[in-house]
Amino acid sequence: MPTVNINVNGQDLSAEVEERQLLVHFLRDDMDLTGTHVGCDTSQCGACVVHLEGKAVKSCTMLAVQANGKNITTIEGVADGDNLHPVQEAFRDHHGLQCGFCTPGMIMAAIDIINRKPNLDEKIVREELEGNLCRCTGYQNIVKSILAAANK
């Protein structure tokens, strides 16, 4: 099996992976980073979103071997110790979650949106959330949380 060297949340890791192993399964099953979720497993729901070299990608639609030599950030890596990331803080303050299943992907997507788009408004946020589904349909507060975090 190929060996991959991946930096996950600031930590250099070396591991053997099967060629066909998806990045999301490497993170969850091998690295015990179960914050990244598998929702639809068909590239639609965005529950598995992580950052690859700082950009949001769907970890269910990527092989672990493709991440060799790259930096990955998962939901576990965004807080600074006990201090939540501003986007996490905003989701808590504005009740941006109901069941919470989509939340890790929503937060990773939100950080990416805020990084890329300097002047966010509600319309842009809703368009940018194209790749993230909330089956509780809790979008009102998710959008509110992202706008609040962007204005911090």
Partner: peptide, 9 residues
């Protein structure tokens, strides 16, 4: 095309 995450790959 697709969504932002798909467009990044």
């Amino acid at each position: 095309i697709g969504d932002p995450h798909v467009r990044n790959m």
